[in-house]
Design a binder for these strands. Structure first.
Lengths: 186, 186
DNA sequence: GTCTATAATACGATAGAC
DNA sequence: GTCTATCGTATTATAGAC
């Protein structure tokens, strides 16, 4: 909370995660963060697109790190990923189904509306899949195989988050966890 | 195009698919549809929430029907679902990555903001998973197994659409298609 | 059923003082 | 770096004529 810029960015992450790009106002970000309103355009002279792009990329970095941490404990990729997705299910539940992926809504809304934000979303998703891929490579997957599986895992988890948030239960994510484990145990 | 109400609803579907709930304005819907502006609140007296709820549910029905049609041709569920997801990949590509799921963005934005729209999203997703589930049951899956797989398929496809739209290539969806086939062929 | 006009509010962004 | 004030333009929704 030391410097206002980082705090604004963190608040933007949280709001974008819940409400998406168009659903989140700059005034809302400022108010929620408690940061001085007058300094918004001092820190982010290019406005909302800049804030969102930076927030999305930062969210990608944080999430990728969380994936790496979550997978690091266990040697077996199938079990590690299974447990990791279960943790997401609990996390979504305990956030009252407001949290989940900080990228999904923004990525869908802006895919063909803002090139700048779209590129940030790509970079963020690339960080996520890379985290899964590394774990798979550690477990003996070829790079090509690991690439494909990492994409599939990312897709399944993202979709699981959508369903869990929509149905207000972590069960869809638990189903995803179970079947990813089956797939990766072959 | 005969009655304005249906036409407004169809236009709303398309715009919500591209831009989500907050990114789509009522004026935009009216303008794009060409429907008489003065009649908006005549047909939808409860405003934007009503239009969105009805549009989401209609999108669910149409998509579920498309799933049923897409899966009806082939006897084998694994191959049918594989081919169906490949068709989505082509569809997303040919729409310049604006199309995909009409539900995703709206579901994420409104999961904890509008109960009415959230319930419509649940109903819509339930229709989609039911379409997959029926095909699996036809192929000898138990109801419990079919339920789980249908949820997993829906999640993977939704996630694949997000990634394909974000990266502006149908390849993530093709990867999803391939690995769903592997999983269902076991 | 459809029109125009408009209310009430929110938005992103900017200007200028300090 | 931060403030207040404000511009211009969207938004959803409503009122009242026809």
């Amino acid at each position: 909370m030391g410097n206002p810029r980082e705090h604004i960015l963190q608040t933007a992450c949280n709001l974008l995660e819940k409400q998406g790009y168009y659903g989140t106002g700059l005034n809302e970000i400022v108010k929620e963060s408690g940061a001085p309103k007058g300094s918004l355009y001092h820190y982010f002279p290019e406005g909302k697109e800049q804030i969102t792009s930076e927030a999305v990329l930062q969210a990608g970095k944080v999430t990728a790190q969380r994936i790496q941490d979550g997978l690091s404990g266990d040697g077996n990729a199938a079990k590690a990923i299974h447990d990791f997705v279960l943790n997401i299910a609990n996390h979504v539940e305990s956030s009252d189904f407001a949290a989940g992926s900080p990228l999904t809504a923004v990525a869908m809304e802006t895919a063909s509306k803002s090139e700048r934000i779209n590129l940030a979303c790509r970079d963020a998703y690339t960080l996520l899949t890379a985290a899964f891929r590394e774990k798979l490579i550690e477990n003996g997957y070829t790079k090509a195989k690991a690439d494909e599986f990492a994409t599939f895992i990312t897709a399944a988890v993202e979709g699981g988050i959508i369903l869990s948030r929509t149905y207000h239960t972590g069960n869809p994510l638990r189903t995803v966890a179970k079947h990813l484990k089956i797939l990766l145990s072959q």
